[in-house]
Simulated scan of single mutants.
Amino acid sequence: MTKFISVPSRTKEILDQYGIRAKKGYGQNFLVDPVIVEKCAQMSHPEGAVIEIGPGIGSLTEQLARYARFVCAYEIDERLIPVLKDVLSAYDNIEVIHKDFLTEDLDAKAAELKKQYGTVSVCANLPYYITSQILFRIFECQDISCITVMVQKEVGERFAAKPGSAEYSALSCEGQYLYDVKKLFTVPGRSFNPSPNVDSVIIQFVRRDTEETPEEIRSFFALVRGCFKQRRKTIYNNLKEYLQDAEKASDALQKAGIDPSRRAQEMTTDEIRKIFEVLK
């Protein structure tokens, strides 16, 4: 029986066979821990379709294909497309798309997958350098009910951070607004090839029911990012810059009952939401 791709010796064999080396520019680190990879796939709510971003040489993709009805994997590195098609050829439920995930019409793709497979989740070992951008984009898509991602430990800690803490950020605010967030487990640096200098964590987001439209969510998130744009600035100064209108910013804060001298990192999601409702 052929070893799973995530077995270190099999990973090395594939990398040597195709002359592949991890590209720092794409934040590539290949998972070489079969226990963690399978556990991650099993816990990702793979009942229907699963979207993966950055499959690399397919270690997680392979395990997802064993549990999900369908796997849609986005890979930006053209060197890896023929590798993926070769090493995953035994599976007929995988679509490998050579594309920058951030340029995809995610709403349309997720709606298509949901219609065909019932549920859509995301499971990925995210490139460290672009984690926030990818998650911000996924958060905006209503049809994705569960997100299970491997991220740098310090990034993972931001998701669970509370207002007033140093780690609390726009990412914390957005994630906790739409999702129940929990840390599943820690992944040591030695579980990757090459091994990074930091540990990772696997974080899971399960979406709460909401009646808001994608447009409303995007508008609210734009406001959140505006409020957090410069952490040292007061909510008034950031909001004034976001709105390009000092009087409108002052009026909105007054109507929302927010002290203009406070900072966004001290405020709850509900408080920022009050500003959004006033500005509607």
Rank of each mutant, 00 (worst) to 15 (best):
L102K: 05
G257W: 05
Y168C: 04
D251Q: 15
T119R: 06
K115V: 08
D77R: 07
R190P: 07
T210F: 12
A252D: 06
V206W: 12
Q176M: 07
H98K: 00
R66Y: 12
T148Y: 07
T103I: 09
G189F: 02
T210G: 11
G48P: 02
P260T: 03
V7I: 13
A65G: 08
I147C: 07
K24T: 15
N93H: 06
F4D: 15
Q230Y: 10
N29W: 05
M1L: 15
E75W: 04
K24V: 13
V278G: 08
R218S: 11
I203P: 10
A110T: 04
D270L: 15
Q152H: 02
S169V: 01
I51C: 01
L171T: 02
Q152E: 00
Q230T: 10
H98F: 00
P188V: 02
Q204T: 15
Q63N: 11
R207N: 09
R273G: 13
S132Y: 01
V96E: 01
R190F: 09
T268D: 10
L15F: 04
T213L: 09
S89F: 12
F276W: 12
A49Y: 02
P260L: 06
I134M: 05
F228T: 00
V87E: 12
K24M: 15
E266A: 10
T269F: 02
G54E: 00
S250L: 11
R69T: 12
T210W: 12
Q244K: 14
E78R: 14
A170F: 00
S172W: 00
V83S: 05
Y26R: 08
F220D: 02
V120P: 03
L84Y: 10
A68H: 04
I272L: 14
T11K: 08
D33P: 13
F101D: 02
Q244L: 14
V50C: 01
P34R: 08
I217D: 07
R225A: 04
G226C: 04
N237M: 05
Q244W: 11
K233M: 08
P46M: 09
Q152T: 05
M1I: 14
E154C: 05
T234C: 01
F4N: 14
S169N: 00
H45C: 14
Y236G: 08
A73G: 02
M150I: 00
I5F: 11
G54H: 05
P46L: 10
Q204F: 08
N197W: 13
V87P: 13
